[in-house]
Computed example of a mutant assay.
Amino acid sequence: MKAVFFAAKGGPEVIEVRELPDPRPARGEVLVRVRAAGVNRADLLQRRGLYPPPAGLREEVPGLELAGEVAAVGEGVTALKPGDRVMAIAGGEAQAELAVAHERMLVKVPPSLTFDEAGAAMEAFVTSHDALVTLGGLRSGWTVLLHAVGSGVATAALQLAKAAGATVIGTSRTADKLERARALGLDHGILLGKDEPRFADEVRRLTGGEGAPVVVDFVGAAYAAENVAALAQGGRIVVVGTLGGNKAAIDLSLLMRRRGEVIGTVLRPRPLEEKIRATRLFAKDVLPLLAQGKVKPIVDAALPMARAREAHERLEKNDSFGKLVLTF
């Protein structure tokens, strides 16, 4: 098979396409003929040697999600058969013509989704559902503060929050991304300055002084103090990413007075059973919305595997809106 391959640790120039041995499914596993695989910021970190995959997976082959057709099934697999259209999150090695996944990690692709869309769906929607609902406890009528609103996960979180009956306040450093997010249901957009971001006062103004019960943050340290200031009584800050740094100073007395919680989360290193649980919750709550067209994966561009370097360069420049996908 052909696969995206990191020949060394470094910039996009280390990306190659190489021939590798075909994987084989073990008991309970499924071999997938990959048609599309999303590109995520974790791939950029892995390329630089900063985010290794779980044990047993090649560090040189990236990929956290895939969509394709079942090519073969291992012993004991009964829920899927060759030819089924499937999608899944993965610990790694998804950006290849063939990939292996545990039977219970796979979800059937709704007929309404193309492979390109399905390849962009799982990481974004599983992560956002986990952050908003499982960890954030989102309820209808609440306000959600969503940072980096043009990112792949944030475009999914925005749609899920709206589908749940929430009001969404989004932030971005790019006016165009705020405008495009409004087409997905964004209620209020806050354009942030390039240097020192300030948004808490505006969030409190928009919420009548109450603040946001749920904050989903992909930026981290740079936004931490403002997140606490923007939080509602009893609210939760769910930290999904640290693009703006991982060490922050916050006012703990304010967090205490707000009776707030700061919850950190990461999906990839979780034990298999926890990832299966997140996948099953996605299948129950989100898959019907995708099938009905009430939410949709936002694909900025679908590029052939040979253009993987370009996909990494575009993601590093932060030019994309939604997800970049590689096709195989």
Rank of each mutant, 00 (worst) to 15 (best):
E273M: 09
G136P: 15
K194P: 15
K162W: 07
M105E: 06
A71Q: 09
R259I: 03
A7E: 15
P304F: 02
D84S: 05
E13P: 01
F328D: 09
T167K: 10
E179H: 07
F218W: 14
E59V: 04
I169E: 02
S253A: 04
A222C: 15
N318P: 12
K194H: 13
R204D: 13
R277E: 02
R173V: 04
G137I: 15
E210I: 15
T114K: 02
G193F: 15
V266G: 11
A37C: 11
V144M: 04
D43M: 11
L243G: 13
L186G: 02
D251M: 01
P54N: 07
V61I: 12
V14R: 01
P297I: 04
L31V: 08
R204I: 14
V153W: 12
E65S: 05
A164C: 09
A124Q: 06
V17W: 02
E196A: 13
L158P: 05
P111M: 00
L158G: 04
M87E: 10
L44Q: 07
E29W: 03
A161C: 11
V100K: 14
L243T: 14
P297F: 03
G235R: 01
T127R: 03
L45A: 10
I263H: 02
A121L: 02
V215L: 15
E202N: 13
A7C: 14
R139H: 15
